[in-house]
């Protein structure tokens, strides 16, 4: 099982994720239409680019936008979870060692163990708040459907199994295998579910950024105060 998951299934899920998202990215930008969207994308590439970068960048900064500041608790939970969800899979030392072995390269740097531990705990606590929010707030509850819970479950699983393996609760090799499996489920799910936002967040934010950068004030010289 372990060798299957770390061998063919790993290559398959990583391949599906990367190729899937390249396809989806291509489809997204190919499907933008200046006349239907009413944004002259190609006429003002520089303004569009600036608007897109600004729109992405501003929203990546904790409390960097009116939106984040309007909901400070949500913003804390959001960043608490997402910082871990992005950094841990990419830069955990164990992951990098694994990558080096499987693909012959590793990514830029390794998180030190205490940092990784902090990030993991913060992510888990944040997830708890995000779940609580979904259960308690009427404006979130009305939107929540089964798929949302499915996505939460899929995203939580690698964290929980990873932590159990990390602290060697019970059978280490069982949790490790479960961690690899749940991680690969995430990779497979990315192109086909809402998890596509991992990449499409950038596409969607870029589009709205171009809209403001070109049409809604950009050409007037005013930048949207996100």
């Amino acid at each position: 099982m372990y060798s299957l998951l770390t061998g063919p299934v790993f290559y398959l899920s990583l391949g599906v994720c990367i190729i899937g998202m390249i396809v989806r990215f291509y489809q997204y930008f190919n499907g933008l239409s200046w006349q239907l969207d009413r944004v002259a994308y190609k006429e003002y590439p520089a303004m569009g680019f600036k608007g897109a970068v600004r729109s992405i960048y501003k929203w990546l900064i904790p409390y960097g936008t009116y939106g984040w500041r309007a909901q400070p608790v949500m913003a804390a939970a959001f960043f608490g979870f997402h910082v871990g969800a992005v950094l841990l899979p990419l830069f955990l030392i164990g992951h990098n060692v694994f990558l080096k072995e499987k693909l012959g390269f590793s990514l830029f740097f390794n998180l030190s163990t205490p940092v990784a531990d902090y990030l993991s705990w913060i992510a888990l606590i944040s997830l708890f708040f995000l779940i609580l929010r979904r259960l308690v707030l009427p404006e979130v509850r009305i939107l929540t459907d089964r798929k949302d819970w499915g996505i939460l479950l899929i995203s939580m699983a690698p964290f929980i199994t990873g932590m159990l393996a990390r602290y060697q609760v019970g059978d280490y090799s069982f949790w490790l295998t479960a961690h690899i499996l749940t991680g690969e489920i995430v990779l497979l799910a990315i192109p086909f579910t809402k998890l596509s936002h991992v990449f499409l967040f950038f596409a969607s934010r870029a589009q709205l950024g171009m809209d403001f950068g070109i049409k809604r004030g950009g050409l007037k010289g005013s930048k949207m105060a996100w």
Partner: peptide, 13 residues
Amino acid sequence: KTRIRTWLEICAH
């Protein structure tokens, strides 16, 4: 097209 469809799809609720 993709702009609106993606909006509807990735809305995190």
